[in-house]
Amino acid sequence: MNFLVVIPARAASTRLPGKPLLDLGGLPMVVRTARQAARSQARRVLVATDDPTIQQTVQAHHIECMLTRPDHATGTDRLAEVTRRLRLPDGDIVVNVQGDEPLIEPTLIDAVAQLLARHTEAAMATCAAPIADAEALFNPNVVKVVCGAGARALYFSRAPIPWARDALADGRKCLASGLPAWHHIGLYAYRAGFLRQFPGLPAGQLEQFESLEQLRALEQGHTILVHTVKHPPTPGIDTAEDLERVRKILAQAVTAPPG
């Protein structure tokens, strides 16, 4: 495998100020995420940030870091700058691992990169897990993806899709038996050439209404492949409650007897 992991990290966060540097078991969150990503088969792991303090902290832990422009609207824009500055060949694969995913599974990173490597016609790859209950299906914060033949993403939405007409008649809210409902997991692999082009693509109506950046690629006719897993990975950290949850998981891992 020959791919690069880039971890975008910015200091600004409305719910958790300074999130990348929050302590997790004695390590800053972004450092723990980078170390976890380094357990994958990636040839290189790099943190991309707009904050000099984050850069200094990451480098102090002997992790590569690039200081990027402060005006990027999204992490994808930040990754595009990295690919330009590194002059990566168009066919190189870049995996975007969010800086607030300290428990991400290295094998999941490998699987998404491998999926894209096997299918040269695709511009991107991502992953999804089955939706297990109606609450998740109807939660707009749980992004759904519908897939077609060959693991191709057909659409991403905050709405409950696919819509089980008969099971949901008369306003019922349930998860129909056998419904192929998938929860999209925000881990992406890109071809470097496409990643450089992506910020320049016009944002379409679907992206703007759903507030889902990946719809821009679909609206412009690009192929996104979806790697599916049986069980959802451990969620990332968005809130103070998430932070405490991950701290407890790490503490338990330290105190657990050797197996």
Rank of each mutant, 00 (worst) to 15 (best):
N2Y: 03
N2M: 08
L4Q: 02
P8N: 03
A9I: 10
R15C: 06
R15H: 07
G18T: 11
K19W: 01
P20T: 04
L21F: 03
L22K: 02
L24E: 00
G26A: 03
P28T: 08
P28L: 09
M29D: 02
A37Y: 03
A38Y: 03
L46G: 02
A48T: 03
T49M: 01
T49Y: 05
V58G: 00
Q59N: 07
A60Q: 12
H61Q: 06
H62K: 09
I63Y: 01
T68F: 04
T68V: 15
D71H: 10
A73D: 10
A73L: 13
T74V: 08
T76P: 01
D77Y: 06
T83S: 13
T83K: 02
L86D: 00
R87H: 13
L88V: 00
G91C: 02
D100T: 09
E101L: 15
L103G: 05
L103W: 05
I104T: 08
I109Y: 06
A111W: 08
V112P: 04
V112A: 00
Q114L: 15
H119W: 11
H119N: 13
T120M: 07
A122I: 07
A122G: 07
M124S: 06
A128Q: 09
A132I: 11
D133A: 14
L137I: 08
F138W: 14
V142W: 09
V146M: 06
V146Y: 00
A151H: 13
Y155L: 08
S157Q: 01
R165I: 09
D166S: 14
A167N: 04
A167H: 04
L168M: 12
K173S: 12
K173I: 12
K173V: 11
K173H: 15
C174H: 08
L175H: 01
S177C: 14
G178N: 03
L179R: 05
P180R: 12
W182Q: 04
G186F: 15
F194Q: 00
R196T: 11
P199Q: 09
L206W: 13
F209L: 14
E210F: 07
E210G: 05
L212Q: 02
L212I: 15
E213Y: 01
L215Y: 01
E219T: 09
Q220D: 13
H222M: 04
I224W: 03
L225Y: 00
H227A: 14
T228L: 09
V229T: 14
P232E: 11
P233S: 04
G236I: 08
T239W: 02
R245Q: 09
R247M: 04
K248P: 04
I249E: 13
I249Y: 13
G259Y: 10
